[in-house]
């Protein structure tokens, strides 16, 4: 409110100045476009690009007034679809079922070019490939969601299904303990979380990913279709500023960590772990495809493969057939 009053006063002063000069050539600064941005459930170092872009003034310089809001994935998807949020970071695997249910959103920019959900195991378990999971035990938070789809895809790549191993559900964040204490041979986790922590603890860890077999779409920037039409320029500017910050952090991870600590001071408690998590996160941002087509690029072929795979699952979450054109847009990318 305060800011908009200042802006109005500024414009008035300029107008007065112009009318006095008669021939003033100074353009009045357009008011900043407010953007409400949804990030993941808990503020964390994984959102460093957004924090850095904000602190470095990339958003402000692009004429944006950005506010952040945290929420879980399902919440963000519906808030973006309803227009309550302008843009947000959400799972690509959520966009497919959401669009199939008629929620008007599109995926407009890749942040995680690799699928961050992985299966991890102690190296001592002897598991080295997806095929090696047959007959083993595996912990997972729930038999649904992105981890479950990833597991189905991973097993499918080795000709297996979820009935070929013994799966037990663990409450959130319980999988790491379960693997470390040997309650299960393996578990699902995130490439930038559990395996990193195990490595820091000195436990050799094996990570199985789906990227080479079924390149599932990871978290990216998601917008509502009506917002996309109404605020296209502002959203383009937002995507560009965010990608700018991502590049900054790729070259200087410490800058990203400092930006995150400025928002979440608690992260300073254990900088080593946080930096390791951030480095693992950075590794997720790039893939062969983004190396070729630029950071943030969306791979339609990979999306098509994922849609086909997810639609073909016996417990599919894709209610109605969807096309890649309905799911992604290239309009906001540079």
């Amino acid at each position: 409110m305060r800011r908009s009053i200042d802006v109005v006063t500024g414009i008035l002063i300029l107008l007065v100045a112009c009318s006095c000069n008669g021939t003033g050539n100074a353009q009045p600064t357009p008011p900043a476009t407010p953007l409400k941005v949804g990030l993941g459930y808990i503020p964390s170092v994984q959102f460093a690009p957004f924090y850095l872009a904000d602190q470095m003034g990339y958003y402000r310089n692009a004429g944006l007034d950005v506010t952040f809001q945290n929420g879980d994935d399902a919440q963000l998807v519906t808030l973006i679809g309803s227009g309550a949020l302008d843009i947000g970071l959400s799972d690509g695997t959520s966009v497919i079922p959401a669009v199939s249910q008629g929620i008007p959103i599109v995926y407009a920019g890749t942040v995680y070019a690799k699928f961050p959900s992985v299966v991890f195991a102690k190296t001592s378990s002897g598991i080295t490939t997806a095929a090696g999971l047959a007959g083993k035990t595996l912990g997972i938070p729930a038999k649904e969601g992105s981890s479950w789809i990833m597991l189905e895809a991973l097993l499918a790549s080795a000709g297996l299904t979820t009935s070929d191993l013994s799966i037990s559900t663990y409450p959130d964040y319980g999988q790491l303990v379960a693997v470390e204490q040997g309650q299960v041979d393996s578990a699902t986790g995130f490439a930038n979380n559990e395996p990193v922590q195990m490595q820091l603890a000195g436990d050799p860890v094996t990570v199985l990913t789906v990227d080479s077999s079924t390149p599932l779409p990871g978290p990216g920037l998601v917008v509502g279709t009506s917002t996309l039409a109404a605020k296209k320029d502002a959203l383009r500017a937002f995507v560009a500023a965010t990608l700018h910050a991502m590049k900054d952090i790729i070259t200087d991870p410490q800058a990203g960590l400092d930006a995150a600590i400025a928002v979440v001071p608690e992260l300073a408690q254990d900088k080593t772990t946080q930096l390791a998590i951030l480095n693992a996160t950075i590794a997720q941002w790039t893939s062969a495809y983004t190396d070729a087509h630029g950071l943030g690029a969306i791979d339609p072929t990979a999306w098509q493969k994922s849609v086909d795979f997810m639609s073909g699952l016996p417990d599919t979450v894709v209610a109605k057939p969807v096309t890649v054109d309905q799911l992604v847009t290239q309009e906001l990318l540079p």
């Binding site: 994935d73 399902a74 998807v77 959520s94 079922p97 249910q101 929620i103 649904e144 969601g145 979450v317």
Partner: peptide, 9 residues
């Protein structure tokens, strides 16, 4: 959770 978070139904 399934309806809200996975199926968006």
């Amino acid at each position: 959770n399934l309806a809200r978070g996975s199926l968006f139904d």
